[in-house]
Amino acid sequence: MKHAVSEHLDTYTEQGALRLSIVATLLVALFGITFGLLSGSFAIAFEGFYSLLDAGMTIIALMVTNLIAASSTIGPQRSRLNQKFTMGFWHLEPMVLGLSATLLSSAAVYALIGAVQSLLNGGRELEFDEAIFYSVVNLAICIGMASFGFNVNKRLGSDFIALDAKGWLMSAFITAALLVAFSIGWAVQGTSLAWISPYVDPAVLAIICLVIIPIPLNTIRHALIDVLLITPTELQERVDLIAKRIVKKYGFLSYRSYTAKVGRGRQIELFFIVSKNLAPKRLEEWDLIRDEIGAAIGGESPDRWLTIIFTTDPEWTE
């Protein structure tokens, strides 16, 4: 049983790291919602809900990474998957990243509206002792998980883990802001500034939301680029450089290249237009040229989809 659990949460794999983050996020979410209700702080309750939403998105991300990993393995499971998804699962990755980032920003917009309404209605009273205790504990957890995520991703290089680590870092900033605000609210009680106490919670929530809302926008932009199959400039330039060299080396007439980045997948299609008068070659010789091109492009892995075609008819390249 212990071995099964450790294997399930193996941080040397993308799936294991995400599972560990999901467990921690769910615990933090329940902790936040509980203390938000006890202290009367909508800011804390929002942070708990935000964490719960983040956990849901991470679970979906984990499902996608499992599908991508399963489609890259050898065995009956891969055969069943490939029969239904012959083009792979890369397209799901930017869709999930974009959806996750959009939902997180939308939740912050909704909370901002609520915070402004609360400020206009005179704020709300809360128990600062419980709020400060929550902030200290949660800040330590968030910093620890953010550090864990960034360190693990130095080895794995996963967009999902990168987004998850940024989520923990955002949560740490949120909690730090809450701690400062609640400490100020607690300090002014019984003084001439006590009138500001009811405004502390909605004010800090509004500030937090204004900070959070733009953070996922870059992830949304990159996800849209992948979903819309916008040609990646660096990859296209590299492929064109290699194709021109091959055309010159083997005396081909010209070429056409098509590239796209979809999540972690790279899709490359190369069409070489060959003269009808070119001396015949055996299939093995054409395969050797393909091997040469593939080696020059590099990055051979289950995440590279490379198609190389030789033809005398330019219409096949369009």
Score class of each variant (00 low, 15 high):
Leu126Cys: 10
Leu169Gln: 09
Asp287Ile: 06
Gln236Glu: 11
Phe148Gln: 03
Ala146Met: 14
Phe150Glu: 04
Arg238Gly: 06
Ser79Tyr: 15
Arg290Val: 09
Glu315Asn: 12
Leu288Gln: 13
Thr86Trp: 14
Leu210Thr: 08
Met95Leu: 14
Arg266Lys: 14
Ser79Met: 05
Ile297Asp: 02
Phe49Leu: 14
Gly16Val: 02
Glu315Ile: 08
Thr11Ile: 13
Ala4Gln: 14
Ala45Gln: 14
Ser72His: 11
Ile308Tyr: 01
Gly16Tyr: 05
Arg78Asp: 06
Ile141Cys: 14
Leu241Met: 13
Ala43Gly: 11
Ala203Pro: 08
Leu104Lys: 07
Lys154Met: 00
Phe310Ser: 03
Gly265Met: 03
Trp195Ser: 03
Gln15Lys: 11
Ser21Cys: 13
Val262Leu: 10
Gly16Pro: 10
Ile132Ala: 10
Thr58Asp: 07
Val200Ala: 02
Val188Gln: 09
Trp90Leu: 07
Ile309Glu: 01
Ile44Asn: 01
Phe272Gln: 07
Ala45Met: 15
Gly299Phe: 03
Cys142Tyr: 08
Leu38Val: 06
Ile213Gly: 03
Phe31Cys: 09
Pro216Lys: 07
Ser6Asp: 10
Leu30Met: 13
Ala4Met: 12
Leu30Gly: 15
Ser100Asp: 07
Leu210Gln: 07
Arg124Tyr: 03
Ala17Met: 09
Asn151Met: 12
Val274His: 10
Thr231Arg: 13
Leu103Cys: 13
Ala296Trp: 06
Val5Arg: 14
Tyr199Ser: 02
Phe42Gly: 10
Ala194Thr: 15
Leu253Ile: 15
Trp168Asn: 06
Glu300Ile: 08
Gly32Asp: 05
Ile213Ser: 00
Leu278Lys: 12
Leu38Ala: 08
Glu14Phe: 10
Gly56Glu: 00
Cys142Thr: 02
Tyr110Val: 15
Ala107Asp: 11
Ser254Gly: 03
Ser71Gln: 11
Ala203Glu: 00
Leu30Ala: 14
Leu97Thr: 12
Gly56Gln: 05
Glu318Asn: 13
Ser147Phe: 13
Gln267Ser: 14
Glu300Leu: 08
Val211His: 05
Ser21Glu: 02
Gly48Arg: 04
Gly122Ala: 08
Ala176His: 02
Leu52Lys: 04
Leu37Pro: 06
Ile273His: 09
Pro94His: 02
Glu130Asp: 12
Ser106Phe: 15
Trp186Gly: 11
Ser158Pro: 07
Phe272His: 10
His3Asp: 14
Arg290Met: 04
Phe173His: 03
Glu285Lys: 15
Ala17Tyr: 02
Thr233Ser: 10
Ser106Glu: 13
Arg19Leu: 04
Phe49Ile: 13
Ala131Ile: 03
Glu14Pro: 04
Ala260Arg: 05
Ala223Trp: 04
Thr191His: 00
Thr312Glu: 07
Val96Ala: 02
Ile174Ala: 09
Gly157Val: 14
Leu27Lys: 05
Phe35Cys: 03
